[in-house]
Write a protein that binds this DNA or RNA. Structure first.
Lengths: 148, 148
DNA sequence: TTGCATCCGGTACCCAGGTACAGGCTTACC
DNA sequence: GGTAAGCCTGTACCTGGGTACCGGATGCAA
């Protein structure tokens, strides 16, 4: 009894042991009780918390945002309406939708380039018949943000 | 005459001067001639190259992939068919489409959570009526990859 | 009591794509 | 020739989300 070891919690949540301490440092996971020798002893709720963190992360929230969401759930008084899960989820949904739109533009550009049979970017950049919009293309979302 | 200064090239391409040297180190930009004192003197084609790089990056290619694309355009002999722009663009399109699908799942999950009026993740995780799929949600794409 | 697995804190490193700074040289213009 | 802006190399730092390694201490079973 007396609590779960870090490796047990990590395994149960499908997470690395190091990640537990990382989350603790980031303020996402409460500091658990310790054994006499200083080893962490987690309550079972810690596993739930990890699942919540992973779910929120999967929904597009950064760890900082997750920390704020968890804080907002605990404090819950006099915060602006954007601070709750509702407000934040609405903002995040808008973000995700914007991202989807951006990627759709990219996908369409790739499709027309394939259709046009482009096979050399440098040649394409010099030819006026290539459909890749070299001059305007840089105006979109941050480069590299959808590669992963 | 004799070439463009790095700041001129950078300004023309909408890029930081440091970035020019970074790209040179990464092998994306050919080493230009130098003045007697060692200053870089770029041909106007350098600006075109930068536009090409930015375009490819915007289309979802990493800098390593861009370097390979540029190499493939130059060497052009006996490479497998996946090595050309066509093959790589097809693969990248598939990647982008997968990403879009993933984000659509996320957007839909956010929408149902908003619809259901969820306002506390921890409470939601403990309640069976919350539509957020805490147990299966971690199975999707890498966490954090669409935040930006 | 021995032995091995696990855990501790602290620090350093990984990815990508840059950006910033320090200390010194070159170039351009008056 | 003076001065200011620009450029040089090299190295360190940034974000975000972890991961890896180290030397030493603990926990637990036989």
């Amino acid at each position: 009894m007396s609590g779960l070891r870090s490796s047990q919690v990590a395994a149960a949540a499908g997470v690395n042991v190091q990640t537990l301490r990382y989350y603790e440092r980031r303020g996402l996971l409460a500091e658990p009780d310790r054994s006499l020798g200083g080893h962490r002893l987690y309550p079972t709720e810690a596993i739930t918390m990890l699942r919540v963190i992973k779910a929120a992360q999967r929904l597009g929230f950064t760890l900082d945002e997750v920390a704020q969401l968890l804080d907002a759930g605990v404090h819950r008084h006099g915060h602006p309406p954007t601070a709750g899960l509702q407000g934040r989820a609405r903002a995040k949904l808008a973000e995700v939708e914007a991202k989807i739109t951006d990627l759709q533009v990219i996908a369409e550009t790739l499709r027309v380039a394939l259709d046009a049979g482009c096979d050399d970017l440098v040649a394409c950049a010099g030819s006026s018949c290539c459909p890749i919009p070299f001059s305007t293309i840089a105006l979109g979302g941050d480069p590299g943000e959808q590669a992963g």
